[in-house]
Every structure is written in structure tokens, then in C-alpha cells.
């Protein structure tokens, strides 16, 4: 059973902000609860107060100028049901193969879910260090990072939505005590330097209120590789956005998921100027993973990331070979 806590379901954002503490750990924000309550049952977080965002009016999707504005409390199934949500994002949401998670989980909660690293989930902290040494390196790290793992953090960012939103050039609106700010989705994440830091750049008393996705003409897609059909996270995913004019690529962006402590943005600009083919997609993917730094047990994730990126590019270009 979780530790006892006090609970509030404020009716407005202002009220919610007042209830949040200025230090991580004292208070936590409750969205769908699909990650938070499990973290609490495992005593990974032990808040004294829970602030439920259900009634503050953050659910819903609406076009606004050149963007689609998605409320942070919008559920996964609402995203899937909405015709204007870009393909890369719906394909990421469709990867969560559980109607229960889709009816409960929110886009804000997906972006801010905590790593699944089993050392973290068993109370050893984000950096999982014991006597100054990495428990991850010494232990079972088959699902751990193959990029960006040179420092103490070896876990992978668990969100499939973040890579899609980064490839699409999306941002989040964040409300705090001092008003609102806007942040590229990419800049929501950081690699913590010490065990007391969280893996996000927002403060404990800030709320992600909206996700703002530019409406673009790009062809975009997400490709995930999973060990099982349902109820698990991908081993690797890739989200891409490609603009093609007269059959030639004029712009291309890509981000890998589940391979690094942060969503791993990669450079695919070498595609620009030519026709996107199976060969050019495979070549750029090989170039990208040449930088990988796998640990001893997770080399397969490098290969999976390469395949995911190749196929995401072909899927976006409408050239996917369906086996």
C-alpha cells in the first residue's frame, strides 16, 4: 500500500499551482495515474500531497493559428479519435496496446512518465549508483541506453510520444508561479547530473498545460520495434518528418525513442536534395547509429534503432514494404 497523503482536486490551474510544493517529492501532480500510482506503490515517490488535474480544464484538442493545441489532460484515446492529429503522434499512441491505458493515460503524463529502469523502480535512484559505481553497468542492462550513456545516467526515456513531437517540431506550454513559458519538447528533458535532480527541466511547482504541434505539410511517421504485442514499451522507436517537393526531400527531421536518457534527436539532413529510397534511408540510419555506444548486453538495440529509423523514413515516404 502507498504511504498516506492528502489529496486535492482543484477546479482551476491557479488553485492547482498554489497547492504544489517548491521541492521535488513533497507534492506530485496526478493525471491519469497510470504511472504515478505505481511509482507510489513502489515507494519510488512518496508525496505528502497529490494534486489531481482532472478538473482544471486541460482536456481537449483545438486548432489555433498554424498549430494544433492539445491540452495536457487529453487522453490517448481522444488523441487517436481526432482526425487532425499528425500520423507520427497517432502511430506512437497506437503503440500503447491497452484500451485501459488509452482511456486513462494522458499526453502530459506520457511525456512526463518516469523511466522504467528496474534499478530506479526498485529504489536505487535515477543514476542507480552503489559505492560510486553504476549498478546498471555491473548488472542486467539489456534494456538500457545505447546513446548518451557516457555519464552516470544509463536509463532510457520511456516516452514514445516525445520523439514524435520532437520530429514534428512541437513545444509545450508550461505554467508556473511566475506565469507561462513555452519550451520546445526537446528542451523538456535533461540528463540529471546528481541523484537528487529529476530528468525534466520543469520545476516541481510547474504544470505542463498544453502541447503545441505545428500543422505542417510534412509526411511523418513513427515506427516502433517491440518484443511483445502489448503491455510493454518498445525496444526502439523512430519518429520522422520529411518534406518532399517534386519527389526530392527538402527537409527532414528525426528522433529516436527508448535508446537514450533523453529522446535522441538525430541528424538526417544528408537526405535533403535527393529522392528518398530504401537505400538512402538505410544509409542515413547506418550513419546515425555509427555513433552508438552500447554496453555489453544491449548491442541489439543499436540494430533495432537502425531498422526503426529506416522503416520510419520509408513509412513517411509511403514506401514502406509491409511484410
Amino acid at each position: 500500500m502507498m504511504h498516506a497523503f492528502e489529496y486535492a482536486a482543484p477546479k482551476s490551474l491557479d488553485e492547482a499551482l498554489k497547492l504544489l510544493g517548491s521541492a521535488w517529492g513533497d507534492t506530485e501532480i496526478l493525471a491519469g495515474g497510470t504511472d504515478l500510482l505505481s511509482l507510489m506503490k513502489d515507494f519510488v515517490v512518496q508525496p505528502k500531497r497529490l494534486v489531481n488535474l482532472a478538473d482544471v480544464g486541460l482536456a481537449g484538442i483545438a486548432p489555433e493559428g498554424d498549430s494544433l493545441v492539445i491540452g495536457a489532460m487529453t487522453t490517448l484515446d481522444a488523441l487517436l479519435a481526432h482526425a487532425s492529429v499528425p500520423t507520427a503522434l497517432t502511430q506512437a499512441a497506437a503503440g500503447v496496446h491497452s484500451p485501459q491505458l488509452r482511456s486513462m493515460g494522458t499526453i502530459g503524463g506520457d511525456l512526463l512518465q518516469r523511466p522504467r529502469c528496474w534499478y530506479f523502480r526498485r529504489g536505487h535512484g535515477l543514476l542507480a549508483q552503489k559505492d560510486g559505481a553504476s549498478m546498471v553497468e555491473a548488472g542486467d542492462h539489456r534494456d538500457h541506453a545505447v546513446f548518451g550513456n557516457g555519464g552516470a545516467a544509463k536509463y532510457v526515456n520511456p516516452s514514445s510520444f516525445a520523439p514524435a513531437l520532437i520530429a514534428l517540431g512541437a513545444s509545450v506550454k508550461v505554467r508556473g508561479q511566475n506565469g507561462e513559458r513555452s519550451l520546445a519538447v526537446k528542451d523538456l528533458y535533461r540528463t540529471p547530473a546528481s541523484a537528487t535532480e529529476r530528468e525534466f527541466t520543469i520545476a516541481s511547482n510547474e504544470i505542463v498545460t498544453h502541447v503545441v504541434v505545428p500543422i505542417s505539410r510534412s509526411s511523418n511517421a513513427t515506427y516502433e520495434i517491440r518484443q511483445r504485442h502489448g503491455l510493454d514499451w518498445p525496444e526502439a522507436s523512430a519518429s520522422v518528418a520529411v518534406t518532399v517537393v517534386d519527389d526530392k526531400v527538402t527537409a527532414a527531421s528525426a528522433c529516436l525513442g527508448h535508446v537514450a536518457p533523453v529522446p535522441w534527436t538525430v541528424d538526417v539532413s544528408s537526405l535533403v536534395g535527393s529522392v528518398l529510397t530504401a537505400e538512402s534511408a538505410a544509409a542515413v540510419a547506418a550513419e546515425v547509429v555509427a555513433d552508438a555506444t552500447p554496453l555489453t548486453m544491449n548491442g541489439h538495440k543499436v540494430e533495432l534503432a537502425k531498422v526503426a529509423l529506416t522503416r520510419a523514413l520509408l513509412r513517411a515516404a509511403g514506401k514502406e514494404v509491409v511484410r
Binding site: T34, L37, A54, Q100, L231
Partner: peptide, 27 residues
């Protein structure tokens, strides 16, 4: 599982399947 990973606790909330183990009663 008591952790949103098995479905044994599934109920309908507003007509949709949901995990009751990962829903607070008060909410």
C-alpha cells in the same frame, strides 16, 4: 499486478475499460 499491467482489475468507467487498481477511489 496492482500496477496497470495485467487487466485483472478492469472495470468500466464512463463506459470505457479502465484499471481500477490504478484509479484512486476518491478520484
Amino acid at each position: 499486478c496492482d500496477r496497470a499491467t495485467c487487466g485483472a482489475c478492469t472495470v468500466l468507467i464512463d463506459g470505457k475499460a479502465a484499471y481500477s487498481c490504478t484509479t484512486l477511489a476518491i478520484a
